[in-house]
Write a protein that binds this DNA or RNA. Structure first.
Lengths: 220, 220, 220, 220
DNA sequence: CATTAACCGAGACGGTACGTCTAGTCTTCAG
DNA sequence: CTGAAGACTAGACGTACCGTCTCGGTTAATG
């Protein structure tokens, strides 16, 4: 029955005040220039209060992102009538997702994935479908249309699309329709068609998600 | 005839001493923990001497990388007798290249590419074949063996391999043989085989290099 | 009832440690060569801790002087049996007081007096009789002996002696017996004898002290 | 006959340009904030050129003062008809002289006297009568009027007036008519009247001048 | 008349202090 | 125990000057 630890309980309102301050500052000065000091000032909180909750800046920022208001706009389904169209639509959605925050933000999430793979799920949950995953509905539709063999593994999409697009963005290179078409036509589609039998337990990447979960879906 | 500007000229030896110190410290403490202060101490130089040359840490580090000793170990040719083997060997070499420096180092290069695309060429030149490009020799051999149609474009390899491997590394995920085999077998090889006619003048990414140049070589 | 202001209070021990370091360094390198940096090093303190307390070097040094250990050696009374002897003894004591610190130290005190006239009293209190004031006992004895008329004002002594001796010291000129005798015989004694009725509320100089106060004592 | 050393001779114009810059900066930022760096910038000279001429800031500044344009306004004679009036007029002139430069300037001259007593003469020469010396004309007139015995020594005036006024100024204390009257009436005049026979070879102070010279005058 | 030594400006150099900032930790008092 | 407040050590930040030096170039007297 876990007796509540003695003493004054943490003030949840303080926490959300602080996280709001973190989020604001993130937008104003970026990740690198964000300091505990400034957060404390802005939130009218003490540094001790911050450190009590999060050991590092990264942790704190991630918490702020997690606490961000859940995306209101529902997960619009993708269904253009062709695999190629669906894939391009997904790519475009992913580009939009990345555009939402600035470059260092993407980078942050990227680095965050490093130690907190759960965050991927978290983002997917709060931010809605990012376009980084290949939804079963799209896959199923393609199989139904005969564009892909049944049992097609989404790995080529999920592993490749997020990585290439993020890097291009970080390099300040254009990620336009022409590029996306080249990527989809010359890499993703051919690769998906092959249905190579790859190991089913590869560790998940930030974009490739959690195969274990998907494997379940596939086998269903 | 370019009149030397007045005043005592900068001491090139000091500069190389400093850059050596930068490189050493980079290896020891990483990019984030690298400070002007420590570089000055290590190089026995004055901070003013550093700031006179580079305004920011990034600039200085990039200079250090550019100045890095041209890789002595010659560009060992890759020829395993099969396309798959060659591709895996290239991937492994790329992993080694990235391992050479720490994670934030890769990140730095990545960000550096952002504003200094020439740096890509620079690194390729000084660091020797990194494994990020698909050499014409490998391509030709595969075509000769009938594994690939003539006219195959290296885009699928160059655009995908570097990006995915770097991201996995940044995410602290294993980049082992199993992963590389999955990548090569289910993405790279199928994509190369298709020889889709894609635009030849896509902007180059940090890993995809400058297709225009290579296309010339291939057609030669 | 003055509620203690929030937050961790300043550590008085740190303060005294620091001031001790200041005093030591003053003695070792002098005022001009004294730096915040060195004080911090010596005291094992952070520069922030220093700057939190004092905005300038002068402020800090003055604090160190004020905090100096009260002079143990009691205020030895002066009584040579003659006015001339007493005055010469006072002058010699003053010379000793000035010798205690180096030249720039005297200069410092001098400048300090500029904005902090209370410091004069402070020094008189902590350093014991400096010889800069003409004690009532000496005056009374001279009057009793008939060497001076009753009601003699100490102004000629206090205003002149300190100023002339300090300046000679600052000019690196000898302040020896011969000089002191000349000063006492040809300036101080003749002037004291006149008992001119001068305004009683002249602003006090660093050496002339606060006549108003002493006048009260005398008339008591 | 000392043959001029070989090589290009120093450019006197550069020297005067520099000293003018020194003088200007002295007036603008004061002695403490004056830097070689700034002088070089202002004069369009090289630091080496400065250091070649003067080893220290003090030396340089003193040179600048010595080089200052000789005071144009001639040495107005003092003759108010009474000793007291003459002395007060001299005091006021001295106060004016000190006012001319700022406090640290006076201080500088003071310290300069420390090692370069000739500078006193220099100042007296270039700046005209400062009021620090008791002119023979004033003394003679007083003797003629019977206010002073013949053979009166100016020591009480010269030793005391400059020192007390300078110190009061440095202490930020008013040096007004009331003070000057008190000083003259209760110290200077009584002391001058006594004509004590003091040693004739006292070392000169910055204000007391060179007794040797005056002794000559007196004995004449 | 050529040499040459000292001059000149510019500015790089190793040092060092400046005054400010942030990181983390710790201490006090109030709830 | 939690909270705010804020002191504490540690040390990097970027700037400024210090006094020395090294350049390319100039200027006069010497040889």
């Amino acid at each position: 029955m876990e007796t509540r630890r003695a003493g004054r309980p943490r003030d949840d309102e303080r926490e959300s005040d602080i996280l709001r301050a973190v989020a604001d500052l993130l937008g104003e000065v970026g990740y690198d220039a964000l300091t505990f000091e400034a957060v404390a000032r802005r939130a009218g909180a003490s540094k001790a209060t911050l450190y009590r909750r999060w050991k590092t800046k990264r942790e704190m920022v991630i918490a702020a992102i997690k606490a961000g208001p859940a995306r209101a706009d529902g997960p619009v389904d993708i269904d253009t009538g062709s695999l190629r169209g669906d894939l391009l639509a997904l790519c475009e959605r992913l580009v939009q997702t990345m555009m939402a925050a600035d470059g260092s933000m993407s980078l942050l999430l990227l680095q965050a994935g490093l130690e907190d793979p759960e965050l991927c799920e978290e983002i997917e949950r709060t931010a809605g479908p990012t376009g980084a995953r290949l939804p079963a509905s799209v896959l199923d539709a393609a199989i139904r249309r005969g564009e892909l063999p049944s049992g097609t593994d989404p790995f080529p999409f999920e592993e490749v699309v997020g990585a290439t697009i993020l890097l291009r963005r970080l390099n300040g290179l254009a990620v336009d329709d022409r590029y996306l078409r080249a990527l989809v036509d010359s890499v993703i589609v051919p690769a998906l068609r092959v249905t190579a039998s790859q190991p089913k337990d590869l560790p998940a990447g930030i974009f490739s998600g959690h195969p274990a979960h998907r494997v379940d879906e596939e086998t269903t």
